[in-house]
């Protein structure tokens, strides 16, 4: 078991190494470099040389990669070009904001998705299923930039209950933050919940049709007891991986929602730094987002392994 965990972690680290190489090479082969971007029209002569020297761009690429990589391992991503701030300072509040948005969405969306999925499966083809399924399919198919805009229009402009755009001072308290993020959370949850509820539904339906559920009924196990002991543990196992992907997506991929609501999260930072050609930040973001994906999937795999007795003993036997 321990060996397996170490193996997985090792594979994750290799993935990260490859990602860092690809982003570094990608940045290198792009025309121009940090100095031409930074100096813009003054990028010639002495100023350019001075800049190249200052940023250390005159050393060969592999040496720069090694230096950059060793700094990253120590947690130092270098300096951002646009503000000439340490990247860690740029990233810090963004990571915090993204974490807040993601965790609130997860806390609301995932339990809701599971409950809705179970309800639709147990009342399959009955009224609750038809109603919930129609709504989930609806919210799945509407693109988030439309649903987000509609939310702003209705809740913020017509009703005036909540702010339409998120403006958070950096020292905002958690409570202040909360009232600001209600709309983004709703917009995100609509899509996320719908996807997951559909998945949970089909998984529960599949388990309900299995021989062991029929056996439990014929054994005289009361309905709800059967659902909780015999159905759900087996039906929700495959959901773990979907939850993991959703979390990873929430932390870095909700670009559209963040842009519509002007939310200062990681997703928007990606867009901003790309359009500003702030290459060190792009590099840093690529590494951070890749680590999130790798880390969360690793946790999901280990959890599936832990909860599924079949896989567990298989691994031990090997």
């Amino acid at each position: 078991m321990l060996l397996l965990i170490l193996k997985r972690i090792g594979l994750g680290l290799i993935t990260l190494l490859i990602v860092s190489l690809i982003t570094f090479v990608g940045v290198e082969v792009l025309p121009g470099d940090a100095c031409t971007t930074y100096l813009e029209r003054e990028a010639y002569g002495a100023a350019l040389d001075a800049c190249i020297k200052r940023l250390g761009l005159d050393v060969p690429a592999y040496e720069r990669y090694l230096e950059w990589a060793s700094n990253v391992i120590r947690g130092d991503f270098g300096y951002s070009l646009s503000g000439e701030m340490p990247i860690n300072e740029v990233l810090g509040p963004r990571v915090k904001n993204s974490l807040v948005l993601a965790s609130v969405s997860i806390l609301i969306g995932i339990p809701l998705a599971i409950v809705l999925g179970i309800i639709t499966a147990l009342w399959r083809d009955k009224l609750p299923d038809i109603m919930i399924s129609t709504i989930t399919i609806f919210s799945m198919t509407i693109p988030e930039f439309i649903s987000a805009t509609l939310l702003i229009l209705i809740v913020a402009i017509w009703l005036g209950w909540l702010p339409g755009i998120v403006i958070i001072p950096s020292d905002a308290t958690f409570y202040e933050l909360l009232s600001n993020i209600i709309l983004p959370v709703v917009a995100i949850s609509m899509i996320m919940t719908a996807h997951m509820a559909r998945m949970v539904r089909s998984s529960v339906i599949q388990v309900m049709a299995s021989d062991y559920v029929q056996m439990a009924i014929l054994k005289g196990v009361p309905y709800w007891k059967m659902v909780f002991r015999h159905v759900l543990p087996n039906a929700l196992l495959p959901a773990i991986n979907v939850v993991a992907l959703t979390i990873a997506w929430l932390l870095g991929g909700v670009v559209v929602t963040e842009v519509v609501f002007n939310y200062p999260g990681l997703g928007r930072l990606v867009i901003e730094s790309i359009s500003n050609r702030d290459l060190p930040v792009v590099q840093a973001l690529a590494i951070i987002l890749a680590s999130i994906y790798v880390g969360i999937n690793l946790i999901a795999d280990l959890m599936t392994l832990m909860l599924n007795p079949r896989l567990k003993s298989l691994q031990i036997r090997k």
Binding site: D211, Y212, H230, P233, N308, R310
Partner: peptide, 10 residues
């Protein structure tokens, strides 16, 4: 088929 009629997680 007892293999499939026993709940796998219990």
């Amino acid at each position: 088929n007892a293999g499939q009629a026993l709940t796998p997680n219990l």
